[in-house]
């Protein structure tokens, strides 16, 4: 791969500096490679006014960002801490009316990103008709299947979703190579996010010397550098969440967060420890 330029990893803070107020940032669910390291850098910078798209759900990442005052808007199919229960800062923000929340359903997020992958303006999706989610989404359209056979005695109503084009896709992965290719394994929603977004920024556990595209087995699970704008090295960058095949979630730390974040004061104390010494928090 002698003709491919090399991609220099950047410091975590430079990566976070690319995330500016008003931008729409796509983030993955808790099980799929969440960049908690970049989340911490965003909070440390005092980021505000960000808009997030959960692909299709989020957990501790968005809860921290909401609690720290970074979030203006959120579109998500769900926000939950899973076995640890409700996401407390999200719940408090909804009650206070301090963020704009757009409810959606998981396949609608995937389909709207797929429309952007294909460069088409919308994607039709089954289901949804009769759900109050649709009733609260003036940006979605109820239309008719244009391919109903001539002479059919009934219409086929179907919902059309506008393409979603995030400004930034942000996630954490096990490794990148020196050309900027990123290995995501079977977590293909990260690939969809990156294809749909204008740019993709990634934190990784490590940078490897061999090209991930040189070997057929690793190439199949690789997001090519074509889509990637910046990479920062962040060992244990998903902690306290896990990274499939690399390390499990730290359930004690997650339980500690869920407990602390039940109150504003508890959350603030947790956040101070998190910003101070990330691996000792909670």
């Amino acid at each position: 791969m002698a003709y491919d330029r090399l991609m220099q990893p950047v410091p975590l803070d430079d990566l976070a500096a690319r995330i500016k107020p008003g931008l729409l940032i796509a983030i993955p669910p808790d099980y799929s490679g969440v960049s908690v390291a970049a989340t911490r850098a965003l909070v440390a910078r005092g980021a505000t006014g960000l808009r997030f798209l959960a692909v299709p759900t989020s957990g501790i990442q968005i809860d921290i960002l909401i609690g720290a005052g970074c979030v203006a808007e959120l579109e998500a199919a769900a926000v939950t801490l899973g076995e640890q229960g409700l996401a407390p800062r999200f719940t408090a923000a909804i009650k206070a009316g301090s963020i704009v929340m757009r409810d959606t359903t998981c396949p609608a997020v995937h389909a709207a990103l797929q429309a952007s992958e294909k460069g088409v303006p919308f994607m039709p999706l089954r289901g949804l008709i009769g759900s109050d989610i649709l009733a609260h989404r003036p940006d979605w359209r109820l239309g008719d299947n244009p391919f109903v056979p001539v002479g059919a005695n009934r219409a086929d109503p179907i919902v059309f979703l506008p393409a979603i084009r995030p400004d930034i896709a942000l996630f954490h992965a096990a490794m990148a190579d020196r050309e900027g290719n990123v290995w995501v394994g079977r977590r293909r929603e990260l690939v969809t996010m990156a294809h749909a977004a204008k740019e993709t920024i990634v934190t990784v556990e490590k940078i490897v010397d061999d090209s991930l595209l040189a070997d057929e087995a690793s190439a199949a699970g690789t997001l090519p550098a074509l889509y990637v704008s910046a990479i920062a090295e962040a060992p244990r960058g998903a902690w306290p969440l896990g990274l499939a095949g690399v390390y499990p979630a730290d359930t004690d730390a997650l339980a500690g967060y869920a407990e602390a974040a039940r109150t504003e004061a508890g959350f603030r104390a947790w956040l101070d420890r998190f910003l101070d010494a990330p691996s000792a928090a909670a």
Binding site: P56, T57, A76, A77, A78, V79, T80, L86, A87, F90, T91, I94, K95, D103, T104, T105, C106, P107, A108, L125, R126, G127, L128, S131, I133, L134
Partner: peptide, 12 residues
Amino acid sequence: RFPGSFGSAYLY
């Protein structure tokens, strides 16, 4: 507030 609808508005 509950977590959200997940995939229910489709899978159901």
